[in-house]
Design a protein around this nucleic acid. Sequence first.
DNA 1: GTGACTTCCAAAAACGTTTTTGGAACTGGG
DNA 2: CCCAGTTCCAAAAACGTTTTTGGAAGTCAC
Lengths: 346, 346
Amino acid sequence: MSIVLLAKDLGLSVSTVSRALNGYTDVAAQTRERVTARAKEIGYRPNPGARRLKSGTTSAVGVVLPAASSSGQVVDAMYSSLLGGVANEIEPAGYHLLAMMQTRHDPVREAAFYDNFIKGSWVDALLIVRTRVHDPRIEAARKAHMPFITYGRTESKEPYAWVDTDNEKAFHLAATRLLDFGHRRIAFLNGPEEYYFAQLRHRGYIRAFTDRGMIPDPALILHGEVTEESGHVLCRSLLIRNPAPTAIVCATDAMAFGAIAACRERGLTVGTDISIIGYGNSSASAYCHPPLTTVEHQVFENGRHVGQALIRLLRKEIKPADVHYLEPVVLVPRNSDGPLVVTRAV
Amino acid sequence: MSIVLLAKDLGLSVSTVSRALNGYTDVAAQTRERVTARAKEIGYRPNPGARRLKSGTTSAVGVVLPAASSSGQVVDAMYSSLLGGVANEIEPAGYHLLAMMQTRHDPVREAAFYDNFIKGSWVDALLIVRTRVHDPRIEAARKAHMPFITYGRTESKEPYAWVDTDNEKAFHLAATRLLDFGHRRIAFLNGPEEYYFAQLRHRGYIRAFTDRGMIPDPALILHGEVTEESGHVLCRSLLIRNPAPTAIVCATDAMAFGAIAACRERGLTVGTDISIIGYGNSSASAYCHPPLTTVEHQVFENGRHVGQALIRLLRKEIKPADVHYLEPVVLVPRNSDGPLVVTRAV
DNA sequence: GTGACTTCCAAAAACGTTTTTGGAACTGGG
DNA sequence: CCCAGTTCCAAAAACGTTTTTGGAAGTCAC
């Protein structure tokens, strides 16, 4: 069903039908109505390929999903919800989400990947996730004049559009809570250093100490993948030290689950013998044992903010420099942490 | 950079350049080489929109992600890995994955959604996930002559392409293990009845009993969403019964986590007082307490099978009726289940 | 009644490919 | 030397839109 058939059916020219459908002002209201009615009746849908060709737009937004593990076999579950939120907002506006998969963690292939994608004019805008401290993808997108938004910030001179959670505040909150409980040897199981979120969280953690005139022990800050396995390994290495930490704050709930398992293996009761705080408020965090004290992180909701911003960006209703959304942060206290038990602490 | 510029640059006609690039035989090997070399050098990429328009293909495969919860706020984390596996296979072949989001669980809007998507000629093939017992999406895809593959089977007369895990065997295995342990009051926390996987699992569970001449108590079979919360609620309702079940098999690890929490709240020790088996072998299942006995489910790997099949389907190397992959099933024994303790059982 | 606007629609070019058709130049057999 | 067959390339149509340009008819002021 093409526009020419529809035009023929209506006894109008192709151009008039096109203009009627696309909201041009120089077509009589009555004609427009007749066209739209018949179009709906006949089930006419403009061919997106032809439209793309002519107008140069694709009605699609692209995102490339990074593999979570170095093996490339696992995708961070968080992205399901993020993308869900994004799609939820952009689809009513007529956009689709084009997801690509970055199978290997390889900077030069990554550049080629993005280049191919941008130059191939597959999408009208880009969503860049898992931002690094210095992220070449931002420069690449800017150079190609491709509208983009990042989920997570980065160190860039130029202004750009971003949505992020308040990583620094989150870990300031968590560390402060543990300090208030009397803990001093508070370990930090952070994510890979190259990611900016890890840097921000580090900063928040440090600031909790310096705020009260203390300095954390650098030896207690570990980096690793944000998985259960990594949390387990890292925590085990922590517990064989002497003195061992009395509290641990983890970059994700998953890491916290691994850490909890490691503590249990050592015969430690989490919540009294040792305190653990996670991050994400994943649904599992409420049902594990002990229920995990963690920091709220509404990924779906953030995805909706991303989607809304993307639409406004594409419609040029707003400048990239003006779209910044920082998710407010709230700690959800449960039972995996508590006051320092003095007998163990000394 | 269009093909006409490239042709001009080479002193050749547009058609010759196109034919050289697309592997036609009637262009001299030397000319072809000259063209491909220059194309690479100059960074020429055929405009996907134009190609789509002319050839009618899109080089994209579509999938619509169902929301896991009725609120539409949560996307099943499993799909991250599934899509990762799919993309991993189809991208080297030049295809992209177009993901849509189904925000609400509404059959009539769903039909319109798929219709719009298929008729709009957005993609060359469809991946249909979360199949229902009678799934209208299959008929819709077939009618539109859109190649498709399902992840999960369905009751359909006509043959079609599918990848699935052996749901029936998995729950036959799990229930048999519990029966071997001496359990008789074995509850089953299943997923929503409308999904075919739930039906197959039900069948496997039943067969474990009938295989040894027994019949399970229908009152012990409950249905709900496959989330921690649902598992928690359902399990609680089970435990206040008299007599209560001595074992529970759950449709997902997440449900099992919720069930474990409910048991703990009742003062029950999971693994001795009551046995619980999950499904999925999620990474959390190895680190929770007690470590969960569960059934292996390699979602990423299954996604790769889906991707490979899709490519072969698109290349017409294989008929839909001939692509069936049933993931073999293996039980992972851990510590959340064990022999029936007789003092409690009577 | 005339000229200048306004209103509405049509013709045609263009977007960047692929594919069909056709033909020039070369080759080899008789 | 001629003709048929082969090899290589070019011209042009087509895909289904959008957008520019232009023009016919109607309206209004003077």
